[in-house]
Design a protein around this nucleic acid. Structure first.
Lengths: 228, 228
DNA sequence: TAGGATTCTTCCGGATTTGGAACCCAGCGG
DNA sequence: CCGCTGGGTTCCAAATCCGGAAGAATCCTA
């Protein structure tokens, strides 16, 4: 599973170019065209690194950076057309980890991304957080799940699937979305797998697996994790 | 105790200027005018960050960087008069963490130093003191381990691994994390080594190595040091 | 230079996880 | 009643992971 990068930038044309380069280098890429969307994707998908543009309408990069740091320690690489040193200093003081000015050589950006991922071992220690839904408690830090207080043993994939569903509790999650998140983009159409693991999960966490209370089926579309 | 920075650069005049700025910012500074000396100081004084110039007679910065990475994961900030992007990429690939080209604004350098130190020290749990877990006592100051009062002889790597696990007792520590912390980022995928040393440790500290009580396996993810 | 400690590579058996395939079931439209 | 679609369930083989063992490579010290 390749590292996931979140790009927050409102320049569509530039973003598409960047996406091609990053995907070409083997990363999975998520795009947000504004800060609000970026913060939401950050919470639900937990990318390994954020590439953040300064110049954006509505919420600018500084503000986004500040908000990210309130909820996450994900490495941030700032990107900007400005080259003024005060900007660089300001960005780094706000909690960014690196700073690249446009225009840049793509391979420099890639090298800096690699260096940052290597240093932070972003994918090493799981981000902290506890998610609760009715009787079900999922602890990312401890990597444990309990149902009505009883610990439940989950396999790595089961845990991944459940954590993604609980992070998006209440939302309708299409098959394709779950498949790409858990298994990667190349499994986006492998519905059979998803069926199977939904089944496993229901066996382990539903009080009555035949009549699910948490993992609901949305016919023809996907699943929804219902939080009462 | 302020962080210690090691500057490796042969330009005396420049180095003295830099030292003033760094000390003015509250850091403790050590100087090495050539690579050989730099490596020696690195081993004896364990600085928190290395600032490394590329252009040096005898051993150049690339070689120094390579040699540092063989023995240490200390953050490295490269410094150079050249601005060619291939140099930047090459330096970062060699294991450097950041790259600043001369001439530079002093406050940019300071901001980048702060950012690097913030990132690397964030997860630095106290490296001294005594950790206890059940019968097992690990004394970082004395560099000793006892099980039920009996001293246990550990090799350097075994000790390093155990200390990282005990400092994060209770948490799930993924393979990648342990490998990065003990062996360095370039060993992040070398699971076999980790298995081996977990095995060694269990032989030495578990009452019944076949049924571990302290070092628990989390299938497919990593290990957990259980403390109760 | 020899010997010992330490680190690292490779292999194997057994257990667990995974995912492919087939089958069953429910609802629906003809 | 029949076939179709999409979801649920069962079964099982293949892939993966873990613990253990044996031995090679390396470093240190005498």
């Amino acid at each position: 599973m390749p590292p996931t990068l979140l790009v927050i930038d409102d320049d569509r044309e530039f973003v598409e170019l960047l996406r091609k380069r990053l995907e070409g280098a083997g990363y999975q890429v998520r795009i947000a065209l504004d800060g609000e969307t970026g913060l939401r994707i950050l919470e639900t998908e937990r990318p390994d690194l954020v590439i953040l543009d300064i110049m954006m309408p509505e919420m600018d990069g500084w503000e986004v950076c500040r908000r990210i740091r309130q909820i996450s320690t994900v490495p941030i690489l700032m990107l900007t057309a400005k080259g003024m040193t005060t900007d660089v200093v300001y960005g780094l003081e706000l909690g960014a980890d690196d700073y690249v000015t446009k225009p840049f050589q793509a391979d420099v950006l890639l090298a800096r991304i690699r260096a940052l991922l290597r240093r932070t071992s972003a994918r090493a220690l799981p981000e902290q957080g506890v998610y609760r839904c009715g009787e079900i408690v999922l602890d990312l830090d401890q990597h444990t799940v309990t149902v009505a207080g009883r610990p439940v043993q989950l396999t790595p994939l089961e845990f991944r699937l459940l954590s993604i569903m609980m992070r998006n509790a209440g939302r309708l999650l299409p098959h394709r979305y779950l498949l790409t998140q858990v298994w990667g983009p190349e499994y986006a159409d492998d519905i059979d797998n998803l069926k199977l693991y939904i089944h496993y999960l229901r066996q382990k966490i539903e009080p009555d697996p035949r009549h699910p209370r948490y993992i609901l089926t949305e016919w023809g579309i996907g699943y929804r994790f219902q939080c009462d």
